[in-house]
Write a protein that binds this DNA or RNA. Structure first.
Length: 283
DNA sequence: CTAGGTGCCTGATTGC
DNA sequence: TGCAATCAGGCACCTA
């Protein structure tokens, strides 16, 4: 078990963190920011600090996999966890997370007795003080939210226009959004469709099944507060694991028996990503 | 426009 | 044994 390597937060994980944060830090004032990795802050550590310290947090929103911290006065911090990012709310001066790669700390007061710790082993994540263009890109440049805005019509039209492997297209954040490797693999199993098929080769019936599969697995993930899988170690903002692992049918299960047909789950590389499927159930 | 490649980063794994 | 090369992974950015 690699307990602190990759967490891969997707929509259900980021939304779970968002809810945790909303209940805990809205109303708090950022009193200081610390980092040992200034590269993770943009446009610069100095500007993030200058625009954030002294400001009250008025809302915590989410768009796709991006967290949006709205500050009093209209500025917004965009936070992306990428592969290995984690946010932990901890009491100041505790050493609970000393081995968990703390990179950025927002110190808070008034409404929150907690420190906001951004931990990230890979350092791929970021905290970005968004300008208007970046804000617009996040709000309008990403694909529709799978549970709120995604329609079957758009889904089928978008698939019909592309010859890319359908899983690669589903994970394209500009066409769709919030779907990462775990939920993509599970959606294809639910739909009984092979992820390497060219997107436009899916029949209307198959693409509708996939549409429903996406909705099903994202909802399950949300209801279970995210997936903490075998080789991952996603935690919510209070350090609790998600409960969705028992719903996984194929992700990281290569070599094991399919739960439906007793065939063997296979793994292939698709667009540089591990792709898991049952060659018997999925066509 | 799309398709493909690379860089970011670190720890586990594999190769010699 | 020890050390170097390889790999995974979301996404930005680059080139053809």
């Amino acid at each position: 078990m690699r307990f602190d390597i990759v967490f891969m937060p997707e929509l259900p994980e980021v939304e779970t963190i968002r809810k945790d944060l909303e209940g805990a830090i809205v109303g708090a004032i950022i009193t200081d920011i610390w980092t040992d990795t200034p590269k993770m802050l943009s446009p610069s550590f100095k500007s993030v600090k200058a625009e954030s310290v002294g400001k009250k947090i008025v809302a915590v929103k989410r768009r796709a996999k991006v967290l949006m911290i709205d500050l009093e006065g209209g500025k917004c911090l965009l936070i992306h966890l990428k592969l290995s990012g984690r946010i932990l709310l901890r009491k100041p001066l505790t050493k609970e997370d000393i081995y968990t790669h703390i990179k950025i700390i927002l110190k808070l007061k008034d409404g929150s007795p907690l420190e906001f710790r951004f931990c990230d082993l890979r350092k791929f994540g970021y905290v970005k003080l968004a300008n208007d263009e970046e804000l617009k890109k996040v709000r309008e440049g990403l694909g529709p939210e799978p549970l709120d805005d995604l329609t079957l019509e758009y889904f089928q039209k978008t698939l019909a226009k592309s010859g890319k492997p359908v899983k690669t297209l589903l994970m394209d954040q500009e066409k769709f959004s919030g779907i990462g490797n775990i939920y993509a693999n599970e959606a294809f199993f639910a739909a009984k469709v092979l992820p390497m098929r060219p997107a436009k080769s899916l029949s209307a019936e198959e693409s509708e099944k996939l549409f429903n599969g996406v909705s099903k697995v994202i909802k399950e993930g949300l209801d279970n507060r995210g997936t903490t899988a075998k080789d991952d170690f996603y935690l919510d903002a209070f350090g609790r694991a998600g409960n969705n692992e028992s719903n996984l049918k194929v992700y990281q299960k290569n070599g094991t028996d399919c739960l439906v047909c007793k065939g063997k789950i296979q793994r292939v590389n698709l667009g540089g990503r591990g792709t898991f499927f049952c060659p018997n159930c999925q066509h």
